[in-house]
Design a protein around this nucleic acid. Structure first.
Lengths: 225, 225
DNA sequence: CAGCGATGTGAAAACTTAGTGAAATGGTGT
DNA sequence: ACACCATTTCACTAAGTTTTCACATCGCTG
């Protein structure tokens, strides 16, 4: 599934585009300005970006420049009529397409598909490893990434290991002792309440999906969908 | 064993497919429309879905989109002749194969097997634990789950342990002393009527299936089907 | 069919456990 | 040595569980 970042300072526009994108089966994320867009690109891997030109804090072109320094992600610019000059400039810095406002969301979607198809043969899924998905919780063990509603969750090493172990043993009751010996190692001689603390932190990072980690009172924990 | 969800508004079609699926050794479930299909997917884990396109309430494509948001399950669409346009659209949203009505059930089964083999490398049965079933009482020791008529029973730790112990020794008379030393531990120095209280609570949680826990007057208890 | 010991049951008391925030510890790179 | 972060320990609390006990009920036996 393609991940798309929508950058525009007008909430209304972001909402409409996001809705259409969802309908097309994309997973969409939003940013209000160039600054936020750059930040989000650092944290997450998107397959394509829809970027407005005129925005506070950091304009679209500067944002694209910043982003291209880090990652090579296709970009479609959304510009107001009469910014023809910018058009040329845009292609120079690696913009893939242009849509002039006011646009029809349908047209934007068509262009997204076109750009993705163009860059696709190799690049689709270049960013993503085989990942498991439970509702809005995406787990990519190979890439050691966890996404909560499309947002990358920053877990500590132990949190990753604990989560991966539990997912690999999903539906199975795991005692603290078992977790300690399999995740921490047989040579860990410590308090078994350590597990609780890590579970606490893991849960807080999983936000809504903390519900997948169920407590088995008097026993331990398990991961269950 | 693979679990398959058959979605079609025509009962006749569902029945025929279910019968063939059973014959192939699949475990099948049915939904009448897209809405029901989405709901069932939220609640259960299927290995593959057979989805009709034209249905009341929620059409097949929309249903697939919804489902793909939550879980990545392979889908085979069942469409009437002349919906070729949909075909293209369908592959876009992640449909694995198409069968055009009228179809032969055999062909559908062949395609199911093909899709499963393609996506399979290990996914069958990953979702479910081995569980024992006595009438409407289902016991999943690995996952520490007990279901009474499909409803999850919330047992306390001792209740689980007591039940699991008794089930593991089903048909065998168990004295209070034996239960205390094996379930509570050799170091329990307490009233042996404690067992009675736990039996009482366990029974009340097992509802109708309390009958499996039989009292052996002057002796103890046993689990018997 | 009365009496008696054994079991069923409800409720209160005694006890355990898990969630949590904060502090102590340990490890890494600058 | 320092700051920074991850990890572990710990103490406290709220919630849940276990045990005990008293009384009701049952079923056998004389």
């Amino acid at each position: 599934m393609y991940k798309i970042l929508i950058v525009d300072d007008e909430q209304k526009i972001r909402e409409v585009l996001a809705e259409y994108a969802d309908f097309e089966g994309f997973c969409s994320d939003q940013a209000q300005d160039g600054m936020e867009a750059v930040l989000k690109c650092k944290q997450n891997d998107y397959d394509i970006i829809l970027m407005d030109v005129m925005m506070p804090k950091l304009d679209g072109f500067s944002a694209v420049k910043e982003i291209k320094k880090i990652k090579d992600i296709p970009v479609i610019m959304l510009s107001a009529r009469g910014e023809e000059y910018d058009k040329l400039f845009g292609f120079e810095i690696g913009v893939d397409d242009y849509v002039v406002k006011p646009f029809s969301p349908k047209e934007v979607m068509a262009r997204i598909n076109a750009v993705l198809k163009r860059n696709a043969p190799s690049s689709a899924n270049k960013n993503t490893n085989p990942s498991i998905k439970y509702d809005g919780l995406e787990i990519d063990m190979l890439g050691r990434n966890v996404y909560v509603d499309g947002q990358k969750a920053e877990l500590t090493p132990k949190e990753y290991e604990l989560l991966f172990y539990m997912v690999n043993n999903k539906g199975i009751a795991l005692s603290r002792e078992k977790l300690l010996s399999d995740v921490w190692g047989y040579d860990f001689y410590g308090d078994d309440r350590t597990v609780d603390t890590h579970i606490k932190m893991l849960r807080s990072n999983l936000k809504d999906y903390r519900r997948f980690i169920v407590t088995l009172r008097g026993m331990g924990y398990k991961f269950e969908v």
